[in-house]
Design a protein around this nucleic acid. Structure first.
Length: 579
RNA sequence: CGGGGCGUAGCGUAGUCUGGCUAGCGCGCGUGGAUCGGGACCACGAGGUCGGGAGUUCGAAUCUCCCCGCCCCGACCA
């Protein structure tokens, strides 16, 4: 490819619309352009990278035995009603209407479509297992598109769906995908960490997310140094023991005592003099409305509620924090003086850290008053104990006991063990060896392809620009001709190096623009080509050209040997298909 | 949806508070010159519904109201 024959609109200045580095570089390097918020055009260089990531995904999916299909982007609402997700997924739908006003859904995901297909085509255990995948554009009405490709209204996703005869078989399919994902991200040069994840709205039983540690990441992961434990913060638990070891001592505690706390509205205020009750000796009482019913959640004052854990415990995702009015209706006091003592109506969920708790302080359900000397088991009627708190950095790992690390990360992939929810609702049933009908056991596996591309940039760049790994760089080598006069030795040499590298199967771009050397060098660094070969009169006088790996040392070699040098460098630095 | 910020040429911006003549600058773009190994230089030039609409005023980029869009923080996800 010749630079002048393609379209690479690089930007010297940073567009105001981009906040994070990877987004800026996507724009500046001329990889993408915005149409409007959350919608982007892939320009030639961006498209090449996208296609390379897709190629790696295809190779690894095929290798893992998955079968490629392509499903419609437009979907009928009926299948969503059938799976039972029509209502719960409302918020993410982009909808379209045809001339008869009939409603259509632009697919945010494809469980319903694939399960409908399988329901019609698969009827025997002899046809299983099967794993279908596609690379498709998904549409989601994001609350807030942001960070360029990171969270867009429309994005390219690889999604795979496995169908198995049993849980055990499904576990095998799951593991194959898990392993394929490890390979895919490794080959993209991404340091993606598999972490235990919450299943959220997918309603699955078991799941891992593939996370790329990055400051701009939208979720937090928790892990230990040894690498034996890693989980999404929503799922993470710690090895922390409740601070109240001895249940017997509770009986020896003094009776509950009410005391005045005028103007105290927060945990922090109660921790100050004259009260001086440390947060870890307070009970935090939260009021939530779950499926229209108020519930109470009790935590240590020093802990934060983890809503994903709460969802798992109460078995629904339709809940929210109660409004100040609802709180008052429920408990007769305003936030700041809330407690669960004497409360009988709402269910009370208590975090395990409160187990055997004594000598605690809580709100009196009377504005301006608190209660002290509270013993949890003695004074409170807890409906259910559970792990409801959010893990904090430095707490002991549940596996090894070493201090946990906390890190922001970008989710690039997610694997779920789904079970039979969709196959049952949509009727993806098969006959087993005994002639008995059973729903296929499913798994689903997603990779944000466009997001992965951006995550690579976010992970590997410097002040000059992008640093692509060889496997997904738009071109592997950039031959920079410092003199483009067709008769000049520099251009002739550049041309012959360009053809020779192309003949060796190397993807090479020849910078044949009528630009000053500085411009060409800056652009090749901004675009992040792994190797640059500069050909100019100055070096050529000594019969030399310059080989400069994007992140390595400049090397002067003869034009005759440059192809071998470059090929050898590539072979030494590319990421192999298998580790 | 709540909170904050912004909208002036392809891009980055000054001017807006405190209304006043042909709306200024840098990059990029065009022509010419000089130069020819790190976004260099000189000259000339093209390019603007000042996000849109309504209003106030002798006069609006500037003040008022309504609308639209974008960016950032929170709830959502690949």
């Amino acid at each position: 490819m010749r630079w002048t024959q393609t379209f690479i609109p690089t930007l010297k200045e940073t567009p105001a619309e981009a906040e994070i580095l990877s987004h800026r570089l996507l724009l500046r390097a001329g990889l993408i352009r915005k149409l409007t918020g959350g919608l982007y055009t892939f320009l030639p260089m961006g498209l090449r990278v996208l296609q390379k990531v897709e190629r790696i995904v295809r190779e690894e999916m095929n290798r893992a035995g998955a079968i490629e299909v392509l499903m419609p982007a437009l979907q009928p609402p009926e299948i969503w009603k059938q799976s039972g997700r029509y209502e719960s997924a409302q918020d993410v739908f982009f909808k379209a209407h045809d001339r008869t006003k009939r409603e259509w859904i632009l697919g945010p995901t494809h469980e319903e479509v694939i399960t409908t297909l399988v329901a019609g085509e698969i009827s025997s255990y002899r046809q299983l297992p099967r794993n279908f995948y596609q690379i498709q554009t998904k549409f989601r009405d994001e609350i807030r598109p942001r960070f360029g490709l990171m969270r867009a209204r429309e994005f390219v996703m690889k999604d795979a769906y496995s169908f198995d005869v049993s849980d055990e078989a499904a576990q095998v399919s799951y593991q194959k995908m898990y392993d394929a994902y490890v390979s895919i991200f490794r080959r993209c040069g991404l340091r993606a960490l598999p972490v235990e994840a919450d299943t959220g709205v997918m309603g699955g039983q078991h799941s891992h997310e593939f996370m790329v540690p990055a400051e701009v990441g939208e979720s937090d992961i928790v892990y230990n140094e040894a690498g034996s434990y890693a989980a999404n913060i929503e799922k993470a638990s710690s090895g922390l023991k409740p601070p109240f070891p001895d249940p017997a001592s509770a009986e020896a505690q003094p009776a509950v005592e009410k005391f005045a706390t005028p103007d105290v509205k927060t945990i922090e205020a109660l921790a100050q003099a004259p009260y001086s009750v440390p947060p870890s000796r307070q009970i935090k009482t939260l009021v939530y409305i779950a499926e229209d019913q108020p519930i109470l959640i009790l935590l240590l004052g020093s802990d934060q509620l983890n809503e994903a854990k709460l969802a798992a415990v109460i078995g629904t995702t339709t809940f929210r924090a109660a409004s100040a009015n609802e709180v008052f209706e429920t408990l007769g006091a305003h936030p700041g003086s809330l407690g669960a003592i004497g409360v009988s109506g709402p269910k009370i969920y208590a975090d395990s850290m409160l187990k055997n708790g004594s000598g605690l302080t809580t709100g009196a359900n009377e504005d301006g008053f608190h209660l002290r000397h509270v013993c949890v088991e003695r004074d409170l009627s807890v409906s259910e104990w559970a792990d409801l708190r959010t893990v904090k950095e430095g707490e002991p790992c549940p596996v090894t006991g070493e201090p946990l690390k906390l890190q922001a990360a970008i989710e690039v992939g997610h694997v779920f063990k789904l079970g039979t929810k969709y196959s049952e609702n949509i009727g993806a049933l098969f006959l087993d060896a005994n002639g008995k009908q059973a729903p296929a056991v499913m798994g689903c596996y997603g990779i944000g392809v466009t997001r992965t591309l951006q995550a690579v940039i976010e992970q590997d760049h410097d002040d000059k620009g992008i640093i692509w790994p060889i496997g997904i760089a738009p071109f592997t080598v950039c031959v920079t001709a410092l003199d483009i006069d067709p008769g000049s030795p520099a251009m002739q040499t550049a041309e012959s190096i360009y053809s020779a590298l192309s003949d060796r199967g190397i993807e090479v771009i020849l910078d044949d623009r009528d630009e000053r050397p500085g411009v060409k060098f800056k652009d090749s660094e901004l675009l992040g080509f792994p190797v640059r070969v500069a050909v100019g009169a100055r070096s050529l006088k000594e019969n030399l050209v310059e080989v400069k790996p994007r992140t390595g040392e400049l090397q002067k070699v003869s034009p005759d040997s440059v192809v071998d040098v470059v090929v050898a460098w590539i072979e030494a630095h590319q990421i192999p298909c298998t580790p």
